[in-house]
Design a protein around this nucleic acid. Structure first.
Lengths: 142, 142
DNA sequence: CGTTGTTTTGCAACAGCGTTGCTTTTATGT
DNA sequence: ACATAAAAGCAACGCTGTTGCAAAACAACG
């Protein structure tokens, strides 16, 4: 099981054109094991003794660049990251789902089954991307 | 005209239970004169010589607390602020409009005429607040 | 399996953002 | 105009994210 996940992360890394290193495997495993988004601070808290702060920053950046994870904007000024679905590729993110932030446990979830509704903008505006973040109370915290 | 705006800002401050000071008037005037959101950095650039950095932070915070302005989350990790409509009061923000970020001029607008569409979440989720940020190209930059 | 060239990591230092404590100055209400 | 309460200024700090460079790890190839 742990080995299965190991294999999965290695495959994912290779499939996205990233060389396989210990740090990348560990960080990717965090994303795979925990459904929900992670902030840099979360990762540092879990792996802080193993890897340098800078390495984590650069790893996250490379993951975003290669379409492995995407960033989620939040009100509290801390960027969170979550795994992308298969449709995302290098340079092209297609996260058409909405994000949910729980006020109790402070976890962030990708609600893949909920698509972002289309919006009608006033004349003259060209839409490029739509971000939707819903906050409230999640299933586990009810 | 400048005096009319002066009066308007004084009224607004008083109406929201804030004492009237030079800094608050100047900062509020910035919001009144410029349609669009402002980041702390923008304000500092315009008024930086007049007021201390800390004063600007505290002023913005008090404006948010009293329901004068609201914050807008962005991907680049810089909080922007925009004027609230009348429905907002101390502690209760009702910004049910969407926000638009232009990729060209990098301005942020409140599209008050566009309401946030309602979303259907999976069972077990309680919705508290919905944030919608659309990015693209604005009217002036077409 | 070892060598070589490239990529990644760790370390140190730095810049920017936002906060806090304390003192001085400014506003408010009587 | 005065006393009291609030805000501004100053200094310092912590946290987040970035950059340059040297050491280490990885990938490809013979």
């Amino acid at each position: 099981m742990a080995t299965a996940r190991q294999k999965e992360s290695v495959e994912l890394l290779k499939a996205h054109g990233l060389s396989v290193t210990g740090g990348r495997k560990d960080i990717l495993n965090l994303f795979l094991s925990r459904k929900g988004a992670l902030a840099h601070a979360d990762i540092e808290k879990k792996l802080g003794t193993l890897y340098d702060r800078v390495t984590i920053y650069r790893t996250l950046q490379s993951f975003v660049d290669k379409g492995l994870i995407h960033s989620i904007p939040t009100k509290d000024n801390s960027i969170r990251y979550a795994l992308c679905k298969d449709e995302c590729a290098s340079g092209h993110h297609h996260d058409h789902h909405i994000h949910f932030v729980c006020k109790r446990c402070n976890h962030t979830y990708c609600l893949d089954e909920v698509a972002t509704p289309s919006v009608k903008l006033p004349k003259g505006y060209t839409v490029n991307q739509v971000e939707m973040v819903v906050s409230g109370v999640c299933q586990s915290c009810q």
